[in-house]
């Protein structure tokens, strides 16, 4: 609900968009699909800047990279034939799992990335796939737009690079990624996940990342000890690898808080999901 919204803008250039966003006398916000901004309560927001006219909703698979415009909807990501192959399975699964079909038709890649909340499926998928972000900033001193590319923020404080920026595109390398998988679970088919674990084989390494609802602020975790174990298992997997993986995941996932579910419940859920995701990578379980 908007209590003070007086201006709806739909700029056609990135520069115009950034100028509107940094209006000195008004509180303004980027509006993409609206599945977050339009749902929350806003007392002071006076201006929304709709990015649908910027032409940043294209999805291309080209020269060993996937390039996904920030305005691309989750539905288009889920349906794109170029993303149906095993290397991008985690990304497709994350897009398909979010909320309901109507929301997937509206919610955008950019919106999901800019929202810093632990109940998200996309961050673990983007982290294990080695995504990069192309951002636009408005340089006031030089009165011009500057573009930068950063690694997907997976470390404490790394999200500061997104402050005041307009996300233009997500770039995901395809070459060098053999397979990926994502397992998540919520209370119902349309609820936000209580835990999400994504895994990928990139080169000779297995990457493992998790997001836990109700977790600490920097909830996206790269599970490095489990990564090291699982990477060693690429050449030879011991018979009891599931038990070892379970112990490693349980040690790395924090049992924190009692929001939505107890911390212990989420940790055990994340542990089970992690083992199942690894089983998909190792060909012992099927992709959903």
């Amino acid at each position: 609900m908007y209590l003070s919204l007086e201006h709806y803008e739909r700029p056609s250039t990135v520069e115009e968009c950034l100028r509107l966003l940094h209006h000195p006398d008004e509180e303004a916000a980027i509006l993409a699909g609206g599945t977050e901004l339009n749902v929350r309560g806003h007392e002071a927001l006076e201006r929304v800047v709709d990015i649908q006219g910027l032409g940043i909703d294209r999805l291309r698979v080209d020269r060993g990279e996937v390039r996904i415009g920030a305005g691309t909807t989750l539905a288009r990501i889920a349906e794109h034939r170029g993303l149906a192959e095993p290397p991008m399975a985690a990304l497709r699964e994350a897009a398909l799992a979010f909320a309901n079909v109507a929301i997937q038709n509206r919610s955008t890649m950019g919106g999901r990335i800019m929202i810093d909340r632990p109940d998200q499926d996309l961050p673990p998928a983007l982290a294990v796939l080695g995504a990069r972000l192309r951002l636009a900033h408005f340089d006031r001193a030089e009165e011009r737009v500057r573009e930068v590319e950063i690694d997907y923020p997976t470390r404490d404080g790394a999200r500061a690079a997104l402050e005041g920026a307009l996300l233009l595109e997500v770039i995901i390398p395809v070459d060098g990624t053999d397979a990926s998988a994502l397992r998540r679970m919520g209370r119902s088919a349309v609820d936000a996940p209580l835990a999400t674990v994504a895994v990928a084989i990139r080169g000779d390494r297995v990457r493992v990342a998790a997001n836990m609802q109700g977790s600490t602020a920097d909830s996206l975790r790269l599970l490095e000890k489990t990564e090291a174990l699982a990477s060693a298992w690429l050449s030879r997997r011991p018979e009891g690898w599931r038990d070892e993986a379970r112990a490693s995941l349980a040690a790395e996932l924090e049992a924190y808080g009692d929001d939505w579910a107890s911390g212990e419940y989420r940790r055990d859920l994340g542990t089970t999901l992690g083992v199942r995701a690894l089983a998909v990578l190792f060909g012992e379980e099927e992709l959903s």
Binding site: Y8, R10, L31, G34, T35, N38, V39, V48, D50, Q52, A75, V101, A102, I103, N105, R106
Partner: peptide, 17 residues
């Protein structure tokens, strides 16, 4: 909305222009 299901309660009317 353009042939796809959309939740009209969270789409600003201006967005539908």
């Amino acid at each position: 909305l353009d042939g796809r299901e959309a939740p009209s309660c969270i789409v600003l009317a201006a967005q539908a222009a």
